[in-house]
Design a protein around this nucleic acid. Structure first.
Length: 558
RNA sequence: UGGGGUGUAGCCAAGUGGACCAAGGCACCGGGUUUUGAUCCCGGCAUUCGGAGGUUCGAAUCCUCCCACCCCAGCCA
C-alpha cells in the first residue's frame, strides 16, 4: 500500500495517543483463543492485530490460552493453535494460560467475599435463569444474596474442596440485579465442574468463568490494550468492575472491534465442528474450510492472508467480505513468485500428422515470463500431445480463439497447428484431434506474418506424468449460508471439490520443489497435497487465474 | 416496550467542522501491451456521506428527531 493511502486503524490511534500522553511506555497485547477448536481466518484478524501491534510498537504479545472450561478443551487444539500462529508468521513473547493464574483468581474471589462483593448462591440453574429477569424487566435478588461473609467463605471453601456435586452452588458477584446491562446482574464467577483439566489435572473442581478470568489475567500479564470482538462490548462494564474492585497489578483497557465475516463460507466454531463431525468435509484441514489449517493445506501462503487482513481493515462495523478479495490477495502474492508449468487437467489427445513419428525436439522455456532470473527449463515436443478438452469446440462461438474444425492455434512456446480432423467414439464424443503443424512457426513469430490469436498449453504424451488435481470451489453456493431459514448445509456447493485423476503434467512436477506453489499456465495456482505418493502426485488448486473468457462466455449465456 | 453498538459506492474502507462537487482496494465497465483470454498499463465508476430538520461564513464531520441493521436474558468464550 502506498504511504498516502495508509491509514491507521482506530485502535492504533488510541495506542498512539496513550503513548504520547505517557499513559504507557510499552504496549502489551495478547491473543486469547479458547483451545476448543482450530483457528480460522477470523482469528487471523485478531492475530494480525495483536501481533502486528507488538511488532510495530516494539511491545509484547502473549499467546494466552483461555482454558477456563475443561469440558470443551483439549491438548490437540492447544498444539494446533500454536502451529497456526507460528505458520501465520508471528512470534509470541510468552505462551500463557488462564489456568496459570487459577490460584490468583481464587484469591481474588476470596477477596471479593471479604469485601461483601461476592456470595455463594445455592439456587438451581433454572432458578438463577428465571430470577435474572428479562431484557426489559429487572431481576430478582437470590434468597442467598445476603449470606454472611463467614458463611460465604466456608461455602466457597467447601466448593473448592469438592464437597458438592456439579451445579449445586456457584459463586456470584454481588452487583445489581436490576442493572440494565444483564452482565451486571450478579454474574457467576465460579462454577463446580468435577472434570479433569488438560493442564491442572484434578487439582481443581471449581473453574472461573470467562468474565472473572479474562480481565484479571490481562492485569497480571500487564496487558495494556485488551482487544476483543464486539460481542464482548457489554462485558466491558463488568471487566472494569473487577479491575476497580480487586487489587490487580495493572489496569488494562478493553477495546472491541468487529469480527471478520467472509461470504460463501461459515466461520463459527460450532458450524465448522458440525461440518467435520457430519463429514461434509474431511477434517479441520479440509482445503475448502476457512481454517488456517485448511488454507495452509490448500496452499495459501501466510503472507497472502496477512495482506488480506490488512486490506480489510479494523473497524466496529458489521461486515461480510467478498471471498473474491481473499482470492485476489493470493493471486497478487503468487503471481511474481510462482514458477510456471504446463499441466493439462482434462486431456484431449492431439496427433500432429505431419510431425515425424518417433521424433522429438527439446524446447527451452522460461519458468516465469516476467522474471528471467527464475531461469528456464526444457520441455519436449513430439507427434502426440495432450491439450485441454475445452480448448477445442466443434462449433465455436464468436470471440472463441481456440481450436475448432480447420482452425489454427499456437501450442505455447512451440508451433502453430491447424485442426484437420476429428476422431469420435461411438457416442460422437471427441476422442482425438488430428492436426498439422507449420514447421516455420517454431518458437517466435510466424514468418508469414500470420497472427494467431489463440495460444494453448500442452504436454507431450510420451513425456508427461499422470497426476491427480483437486479443484476446489467455494463451499457454499449461498453468499451467507447462515441467513434465511433453510438449514445451512443445504446450500453446500456440490461442486466444491472436483477431483481429476487423469491430469497430464510436465515430468518435472513428479518431484515438486519443497513449499512451492506452481502456476499451471492458464489454469491457476496449485500446491502439492500431503496425500501425494511416489508415482501419484496430488495437487490442490489454490485459486484459478482471472478468467476473462469465462466471463465472456457466461455473459453469452445470460 | 431495557441496555449496548453501527450506518460513507455492489463489497471493504479513509475521512477526527474549512484545500471534500469524499482517498485507496476489491468487483464491474471500457481501451492498450502481451506466445498465459494471466500479469502489466491507462481511463470510467458517490455533486454525495441512512433520512429529515437545525447550528455555522462553511458539516460526512456539531445538535435534535426519526429510520434500518447487529449484539445481550450460558453454571460457553
Amino acid at each position: 500500500m502506498a504511504p498516502s493511502t495508509r491509514s491507521v486503524n482506530f485502535i492504533r490511534q488510541i495506542i498512539d495517543h496513550d503513548l504520547e500522553t505517557g499513559m504507557h511506555r510499552q504496549i502489551v497485547t495478547r491473543f486469547p483463543p479458547e483451545p476448543n477448536g482450530y483457528l480460522h481466518i477470523g482469528h487471523a484478524k485478531s492475530i494480525w492485530l495483536n501481533f502486528g501491534i507488538k511488532d510495530d510498537y516494539g511491545g509484547q504479545c502473549m499467546l494466552r490460552f483461555d482454558d477456563t472450561n475443561p469440558e470443551k478443551e483439549n491438548q490437540e487444539y492447544l498444539d494446533a493453535i500454536e502451529e497456526d500462529v507460528r505458520w501465520l508468521g508471528y512470534a509470541w513473547t510468552r505462551i500463557t494460560h488462564a489456568s496459570d493464574y487459577f490460584d490468583q483468581f481464587h484469591d481474588y474471589a476470596v477477596n471479593l467475599i471479604e469485601q461483601g462483593l461476592a456470595y455463594v448462591d445455592s439456587q438451581t440453574p433454572d432458578q438463577i435463569r428465571s430470577n435474572r429477569g428479562t431484557l426489559s424487566e429487572p431481576g430478582t435478588d437470590s434468597p442467598y444474596r445476603n449470606r454472611s461473609t463467614r458463611e460465604n467463605r466456608k461455602l466457597f471453601h467447601d466448593m473448592k474442596a469438592g464437597k458438592f456435586p456439579d451445579g449445586t452452588h456457584v459463586l456470584r458477584a454481588r452487583i445489581d440485579m436490576s442493572a440494565a446491562n444483564l452482565n451486571l446482574r450478579d454474574p457467576v464467577l465460579y462454577r463446580i465442574r468435577h472434570h479433569e483439566h488438560p493442564r491442572t489435572g484434578n487439582r481443581w473442581c471449581i473453574y472461573p468463568m470467562y468474565d472473572f478470568a479474562h480481565g484479571q489475567a490481562d492485569a497480571i500479564e500487564g496487558v495494556t490494550h485488551s482487544l476483543c470482538t464486539m460481542e464482548f462490548e457489554d462485558h466491558r462494564a463488568l471487566y472494569d468492575w473487577f479491575i476497580e474492585h480487586l487489587p490487580v497489578p495493572s489496569r488494562p483497557r478493553q477495546i472491541e472491534f468487529s469480527r471478520l465475516n467472509l461470504n460463501h463460507t461459515v466461520m463459527s466454531k460450532r458450524m465448522l465442528t458440525l461440518l467435520i463431525e457430519q463429514e461434509y468435509v474431511s477434517g479441520w484441514d479440509d482445503p475448502r474450510l476457512p481454517t488456517l489449517a485448511g488454507l495452509r493445506r490448500r496452499g495459501y501462503p501466510p503472507e497472502s492472508i496477512r495482506n488480506f487482513i490488512g486490506a480489510v481493515g479494523i473497524t466496529r462495523k458489521n461486515n461480510l467480505i467478498d471471498v473474491g478479495l481473499l482470492e485476489n490477495c493470493v493471486r497478487e502474492t503468487l503471481d511474481p513468485v510462482a514458477p510456471r508449468t504446463m499441466a493439462v487437467l482434462d486431456p484431449l489427445k492431439v496427433v500432429i500428422e505431419n510431425y515425424p513419428e518417433g521424433q522429438f525436439e527439446t524446447l527451452e522455456v522460461p519458468n516465469h515470463p516476467g522474471n528471467p532470473d527464475m531461469g528456464t527449463r526444457k520441455i519436449t515436443l513430439g507427434r502426440e500431445v495432450y491439450i485441454e478438452r475445452d480448448d477445442y469446440m466443434d462449433d465455436p462461438p464468436k470471440k472463441y480463439f481456440r481450436l475448432g474444425p480447420d482452425r489454427e492455434v499456437r501450442l505455447r512456446y512451440a508451433f502453430i497447428i491447424r485442426c484437420t480432423g476429428i476422431v469420435r467414439d461411438a457416442s460422437g464424443r471427441v476422442q482425438e484431434l488430428r492436426c498439422r503443424y507449420d514447421p516455420d512457426t517454431r518458437g517466435g513469430n510466424a514468418p508469414s506474418g500470420r497472427k494467431v490469436r489463440g495460444i494453448i498449453h500442452w504436454v507431450s504424451v510420451q513425456h508427461c506424468i499422470n497426476a491427480e488435481a483437486r479443484l476446489y470451489d467455494r463451499l457454499f453456493s449461498s453468499p451467507d449460508p447462515l441467513s434465511g431459514d433453510r438449514v445451512f448445509t443445504e446450500s453446500i456447493n456440490p461442486a466444491s471439490l472436483e477431483s481429476r485423476h487423469q491430469c497430464k503434467l510436465e515430468p518435472g512436477l513428479g518431484q515438486p520443489a519443497a513449499d512451492t506453489r506452481y502456476q499451471f499456465e492458464r489454469k491457476g495456482y496449485f500446491y502439492p497435497d500431503r496425500d501425494s505418493r511416489p508415482g501419484h502426485p496430488v495437487f490442490n488448486r489454490i485459486v484459478t487465474l482471472r478468467d476473462t473468457w469465462a466471463r465472456i462466455s457466461r455473459q453469452r449465456i445470460t
